[in-house]
């Protein structure tokens, strides 16, 4: 049995990754609550396409199950199991494939509490976002789509600790949670410990303090925005980066407080540009904090095409430290 990160107090553990945190959270949930089970494609003995469930089927037999390639029925089954008192965690192999499960997520799971009074404690893990060479169908960011529907909580962890605690908190929540984990961060993002800062779902975090402009973002784009802020620092600009952590609920108070300090807003997201999280942020700030703004609020998203395959195209499709810096310079020039 492979349980490499079970005891984190051991001194020889020097760093853990974002995907270690996801695996560890699921192991802790399986250990602590008999009602939790994992369901998804290739997640049992194979350990998942990204190894987020490696060793768990062995450690918890009859709690980790391979499903047929039936995304609709996977969520249908999970909702039925939740009605019977279980707390399922479903892994979509890629967020993109959750389009097949869209009906069960937004019509079955999301409407259930409002219609019947019985909440559905379901967590859907969506391996989200782009990585080089992944192409149009293994790269999508679907958080804005799910956030549009009432009855869902949508979280987008950007740090190793958030990946751990937000999955724990999602599974303990009585409502359906769409847990958007970023594939680019899986092995790239490392920390000394999984169990760092534990903030509740619904509270944003100041990832980097500043005073001249606010970047509101989430997930992998937090790291790109911090890089852009580092670049602008060389010219004397102090950029504040707000990590939303959960896009629904949206912690507009933290966003407004930051905009009150800086007077300038740039909302950055990796999803497609029409509508979505960045549009919601700009809309809410304009509505509730128009008087705080010294410049027109700006948005930066991916381009309005499918996510391209080739790394050269992909790198120019999503926001980058370069394009975020450019957008910030434009914002600061007003």
């Amino acid at each position: 049995m492979v349980r490499p990160f079970h005891n984190l107090s051991l001194h020889f553990i020097v760093s853990v990754t974002y995907i270690d945190a996801i695996r560890e959270a699921q192991e802790d949930l399986l250990r602590e609550d008999d009602r939790v089970f994992l369901y998804g494609q290739d997640i049992a003995n194979f350990g998942g396409a990204f190894k987020a469930t490696k060793g768990l089927a062995e450690a918890y037999p009859n709690r980790v199950f391979d499903s047929p390639i039936s995304e609709d029925a996977m969520i249908g089954l999970a909702v039925g199991a939740a009605i019977e008192g279980m707390r399922p965690i479903v892994e979509m192999q890629f967020a993109d494939f959750s389009s097949i499960a869209f009906n069960q997520i937004v019509n079955q799971a999301a409407t259930h509490f409002y219609r019947t009074g019985m909440p559905i404690p379901l967590t859907v893990r969506l391996p989200s976002g782009g990585t080089p060479g992944s192409g149009p169908f293994h790269s999508q960011s679907m958080e804005g789509l799910y956030a549009q529907y009432p009855g869902l909580v949508v979280v987008t962890p950007a740090t190793v600790s958030d990946a751990y605690y937000m999955l724990i908190d999602a599974a303990k929540m009585n409502d359906p949670v769409i847990y958007c984990e970023h594939k680019f961060l899986y092995r790239w993002l490392k920390a000394k410990t999984i169990k760092g800062e534990h903030l509740p779902i619904g509270q944003a975090r100041i990832a980097r303090p500043g005073k001249h402009a606010t970047v509101v973002t989430y997930s992998a784009m937090v790291h790109e925005a911090v890089r852009a802020a580092d670049r602008l620092q060389q010219d004397g600009w102090e950029i504040e980066v707000v990590d939303l952590r959960s896009v629904k609920p949206l912690d507009i108070d933290t966003v407004l407080a930051s905009v009150a300090r800086t007077g300038r807003l740039l909302a950055v997201g990796e999803a497609f540009p029409w509508g979505g999280v960045t549009a919601e942020v700009v809309s809410r700030v304009t509505e509730e904090g128009f008087h705080l703004l010294d410049a027109p609020p700006q948005r930066l998203n991916s381009r309005d095409t499918p996510v391209p395959y080739h790394p050269k195209l992909w790198a120019a499709h999503r926001p980058t430290p370069e394009s975020i810096s450019e957008a910030l310079r434009k914002l600061l020039s007003f």
Binding site: F37, N62, R63, S70, D72, A73, M74, I75, G76, L77, A78, V79, G80, A81, A82, I83, E84, G85, M86, N103, Q104, N107, Q108
Partner: peptide
């Protein structure tokens, strides 16, 4: 949509 839902209720009964 209710076909997998019923399957899930039965699946949960098995787990319990």
């Amino acid at each position: 949509a209710q076909v997998p839902l019923i399957a899930g209720m039965l699946f949960a009964k098995r787990l319990k």
